[in-house]
Design a protein around this nucleic acid. Structure first.
Length: 624
RNA sequence: GUCCCGGUAGCUCAGUUGGACAGAGCAGCGGUCUUCUAAAUCGCAGGUCAGUGGUUCGAAUCCACUCCGGGACGCCA
């Protein structure tokens, strides 16, 4: 049996690449040392496990047929202890070289990843990564729009943590500016009028206040203009004029409130603080229910940047980064390939969200020490974030002190959640759908299915299972497709217990675990833990190959920020296990050695699958 | 108008730095439970990869143009 340390740890691709690179160097001394022998998994298992596509580029370069190049390579190839011998019949098609791993090699590689880390080694140089996620607004309930920012952001954060990096989550709470001042003024007025008790204030009430405050301030200024322009008469003008006067008064109160907030007036700040606390308590509870690790200490609201904006803008002006344009202040980005300037201060002196976002880049890179800043933010902000990234780079804010290279600012953009009609997901009346209502309905529907599939559970058990299944169903749907695309939200599809769904994966994990419960009942001890792995049956081989892919897949999600790759992997692994479980008796294996080897394989599968689901942020279960 | 993102089987979607006849799931048809959770598994059927042209030994993948759908475009956030 080969020594795992001899074959580049656990990774068959790397091990084969080394052997092939050596053979290519021997066969073609002219090629440089960095030549990539292009090892990939073979799509059709009937042809082999892996293939090298090295012969095609070599054939082209040396003016020979790729099959001749392949023949030269295999003449120098030594796969002893790793794979079946490669012969002329291994060359196929235009010049593919097919490779079939040996069962004992697979067993050795699996043994190498059968560790607590499951083959994922800590990075040589851990990086600090900031993940911007969730992005709630105060005085508003979480709705579907926050689902993806929370679920995707948390999955990315977990992935990077799993890879051994230092992750700082940042919930960029929308807690500042004129809209917030409007609610603050409104709540203050309502409280003073005795219509609201701040002690028992809840989020639905706040949301109502927010809406009415917005409506009061915005009341038909445009309508009045139209009435004047088209001369609809003094009566219409007077009616609208009254409304507008009210709106102007409300707006004036809001602006006054904003000034007092900015000045730190204790009474006003106390009202604001109450709004903040009521909102965040509810928001963090939803995050907890979603199994998203977003905590109070992860909040870095817009308000926390308020005091930094004026000095930052002054700095930008002084250094000539920002310039005036029509009374406003902009940063031009033409030289960075963006023809729309980034507006950072309005003509009236007010700041914009780009200003706050630049301050956030600066703090995240300069103070928090981020080498990467990842934004789990919707694709509608694509241009905005490009501008902010470019403007921050131009200002030098994206480069850590003393560092040679700037931090990497990355937008993990996602598409919209759509309703059945293909339009953005809304209630019949056009309101946003409350996230909590969505979770409640998913859990309720899951409960019905659980009761039907397995009537033996106690009500308590059923509730717990339904909760996990419902949450997993929603999260998995959100994570399992390419995030840039929109998707249609459909309960029946995500809660289907067959196919590529969260419930199916939970079930697959339960099956891997239940075998040990059953084994315990039959008096089988833990001797299998140290039993030698044996990979003989085709289903065992397919499962082994799937398990060995795990570290590389997690790594690729960390690089690409695409959690759906890990979902696809988990689904593949679950499928490989199901096939194995069907074809290979474990507890009734023909002999004890086979049984123990298979138990160990089940255990490794269970741990990898549970780890993958954990990285995705899905809740898991012991039984269903 | 400019820019960005999508378009793959009836439906929902994968498709790694270009590689073998384009893969799953659902829906349809047909096998497999006295045996480890059948919420499973095995098989059949189903596709001009939106279109045209180009690069290449080789293109769903890269380039150009066209069509369709969505989005964003300095004084909201």
């Amino acid at each position: 049996m080969p020594d795992p340390s001899d074959i580049a740890a656990y990774d068959p691709v790397r091990a084969l690449a080394e052997r092939f690179a050596a053979a290519v160097r021997a066969a073609f001394p002219q090629v440089d040392a960095g030549f990539d022998p292009l090892i990939t998994a073979t799509k059709n298992p009937a042809l082999g496990d892996f293939q090298s596509n090295a012969a095609m580029p070599l054939g082209k370069r040396f003016g020979m047929s790729p099959r001749d190049a392949a023949t030269k390579i295999i003449g120098q190839l030594d796969l002893a202890g790793l794979a079946e011998p490669v012969t002329a019949s291994s060359i196929a098609g235009p010049g593919f070289i097919n490779i079939r791993l040996r069962g004992d090699t697979l067993a050795a590689l699996l043994t190498a990843i059968d560790t607590p880390g499951l083959g994922i080694a800590p990075p040589a140089a851990p990086r600090t990564v900031v993940v911007d996620l969730c992005g709630v607004n105060i005085a508003k309930e979480m709705h579907v729009g926050h689902l993806r920012a929370t679920v995707i952001g948390d999955a990315l954060a977990r992935t990077l943590e799993r890879l051994g990096h230092r992750v700082i989550r940042q919930n960029h709470v929308g807690d500042w500016g004129l809209p917030i001042a409007m609610v603050t003024a409104k709540l203050d007025a309502e409280t003073r009028a005795g219509r609201i008790d701040t002690g028992t204030l809840d989020l639905p009430t706040l949301t109502r206040l927010y809406r009415s405050a917005q409506a009061e301030c915005a009341r038909d200024l445009r309508g009045l203009e139209a009435v004047r322009r088209f001369g609809l008469g003094p009566k219409a003008e007077a009616e609208l004029g009254e409304q507008v006067a009210g709106a102007e008064a409300a707006m004036a109160r809001a602006k006054d409130t904003l000034l007092r907030l900015q000045a730190g007036d204790p009474a006003t700040v106390a009202v604001w603080r109450r709004i903040y606390d009521v909102t965040m308590t509810a928001c963090l509870a939803v995050c907890a229910r979603l199994h998203a690790r977003v905590r109070a200490e992860d909040s870095a609201g817009e308000s926390s940047y308020a005091a930094e904006l004026e000095p930052m803008v002054a700095d930008l002006v002084r250094r000539g980064i920002a310039e005036e344009s029509d009374g406003a202040l902009v940063i031009r980005l033409d030289e960075l390939g963006i023809d729309v300037p980034c507006l950072i201060r309005k003509a009236d002196g007010g700041y914009l969200y780009a200003t706050t976002d630049m301050a956030a880049v600066r703090r995240r890179v300069q103070n928090l020490g981020a080498a990467r800043v990842i934004y789990a933010v919707g694709s509608t902000q694509l241009l905005h974030l490009r501008q902010v990234f470019a403007a921050s780079a131009k200002a030098g804010y994206a480069t850590p002190p003393g560092a040679a290279a700037p931090a990497s600012l990355e937008h993990a953009a996602f598409g919209s959640v759509l309703g059945d009609d293909g339009r953005p997901f809304k209630t019949r009346s056009g309101d946003n759908v409350r996230l909590e209502d969505l979770l409640d309905e998913a859990v309720e529907r899951a409960g019905r299915v659980v009761a039907e599939k397995n009537p033996g559970h106690s009500p308590q058990e059923r509730r717990e299972i339904a909760e996990a299944v419902g949450i997993a169903a929603i999260k998995y749907t959100d994570l399992s497709t390419d995030r840039i695309k929109d998707y249609v939200f459909r309960f029946d599809r995500m809660l289907a217990f067959e196919g590529n769904t969260g419930p199916y994966l939970l079930y697959a994990l339960v099956r891997t675990r239940s075998i040990f419960r059953k084994g315990g009942e039959r008096g089988i001890g833990g001797g299998w833990r140290s039993a030698p792995l044996r990979i003989e049956h085709p289903a065992e081989k397919a499962l082994a190959l799937a398990l060995l892919r795990y570290p590389g897949v997690v790594k690729s999600v960390g690089d690409s920020l695409e959690p759906h790759r890990l979902c696809q992997y988990a689904y593949d692994l679950a499928g490989a296990f199901s096939t194995f479980f069907d074809a290979c008796p474990v507890l009734q294996a023909p002999d004890d050695a086979t049984r123990d080897a298979r138990l160990r394989l089940c255990d490794l599968t269970a741990r990898v699958l549970a780890d993958a689901l954990g990285v995705l942020g899905l809740p898991t279960l012991e039984r269903m």
